[in-house]
């Protein structure tokens, strides 16, 4: 099957999967009880509670509530977030952008360092650089994210004062337009290098924290794949025909070693999104993860539903992208069979 046909087929199935996921999640959230609690204060009378239930259609049967919610989603209305005290749709996109900016930055750190370290170690198997890289990699995987984050926070924010927390200097943020809500991109569009530096400066600690954990996994996978590839006959053949070791590595072995590594990178994106919850809370990053954590703790079901819907779609799309990337890298893979 052609890649294009495969993508179209998967995209056609996507809405059905999303609807199925949304029904399951909606039902599960309602099993935990009515979502009215987030809109209540402890001083409300029964009549006032009833008024609010009517305002949010929570006095209707659950299937009817789902209908209201689903039809609202189709109109772009994801409900009212009790935690953010605003419509979910008003808050969601800026927070999504913040999380994506952090996740992508972390992924860049993880991929660049992971592949570089993995290649470096794999090409020097069982020598000192390989051992040192292993120590570095395993440390990243072994250290709990929250602990590493707090460590960096205390050292680089509290004691050294080199890096801030939060997402931006509010004054610098305010002086540029935000067409994408991605601070780095917006600052470049605005041609404001000061704002760009501010964006990168604020990104550094959370991106390094998140990226380091994923770096370890990618580096280990890259190293072991490369070690295997370097033992293959085609590598011997390349060496035999006189190619320099640098080219053997770069043009032959590394490309093939990237195939399993790409799969790990795709999975790592999920790790980065999940890890962003911890990083966002600790570094005061105003993204979806922190909002979601507050929402779960306080029972803000409108926000939870929006988040689950989003992550479902995202994982389905990322999954698709990984499959396509896999086929692109390895022509032997036949999609759809």
């Amino acid at each position: 099957m052609q890649i294009r046909d495969y993508i179209i087929r998967r995209l056609m199935v996507l809405p059905l999967l999303v609807v199925g996921v949304s029904i399951i999640v909606f039902a599960l959230t309602r099993i935990g009880g009515s979502p009215i609690g987030i809109y209540l204060s402890h001083e409300m009378s029964q009549e006032e509670v009833a008024e609010l239930e009517e305002r949010f259609h929570l006095d209707d049967p659950v299937p009817v509530q789902y209908f209201y919610w689903a039809s609202g989603v189709l109109r772009g209305d994801l409900g009212w977030s009790g935690v953010a005290a605003a419509p979910v749709t008003d808050v969601f996109l800026p927070k999504l952008a913040a999380t994506m900016e952090l996740a992508v930055s972390s992924a860049i750190v993880a991929v660049v360092l992971g592949i570089a370290l993995g290649t470096f170690a794999g090409a020097r198997r069982n020598r000192l650089p390989d051992h040192l890289t292993r120590v570095f990699s395993i440390s990243g995987a072994a250290m709990p994210l929250f602990w590493f984050a707090i460590l960096l926070l205390i050292v680089f924010w509290v004691y050294l004062g080199w890096f801030p927390i939060g997402r931006s200097d509010p004054d610098l943020w305010a002086r540029i337009d935000h067409p994408t809500n991605l601070y780095t991109v917006d600052s470049l569009i605005a041609g404001d290098f000061g704002a760009f530096r501010d964006a990168v400066w604020h990104l550094t600690l959370p991106a390094v924290t998140l990226g380091y954990g994923a770096t370890a996994i990618i580096a280990r996978m890259m190293r072991s794949s490369l070690v295997e590839e370097l033992q293959e006959d085609y590598v011997d053949a390349a060496r035999a025909k006189g190619l320099p070791e640098r080219l053997v590595l770069r043009r032959h072995a590394r490309r093939n070693a990237l195939i399993p590594t790409v799969t790990v990178i795709g999975l790592s994106f999920g790790f980065l999104l999940q890890g962003s919850v911890v990083a966002e809370i600790i570094f005061q990053w105003p993204g979806l993860g922190r909002w979601m954590a507050d929402s779960v703790l306080r029972g803000d079901q409108a926000t939870i539903m929006a988040y689950v819907l989003f992550t479902s779609v995202l994982f389905l799309v990322v999954n698709l992208a990984v499959d396509v990337a896999y086929a692109y890298l390895d022509r032997r893979v036949v999609l759809g069979e």
Partner: peptide, 12 residues
């Protein structure tokens, strides 16, 4: 959770 408490607290 706070929301659960508030709901119980507002019940009569």
């Amino acid at each position: 959770a706070e929301a659960v408490f508030d709901e119980a607290h507002a019940t009569d």
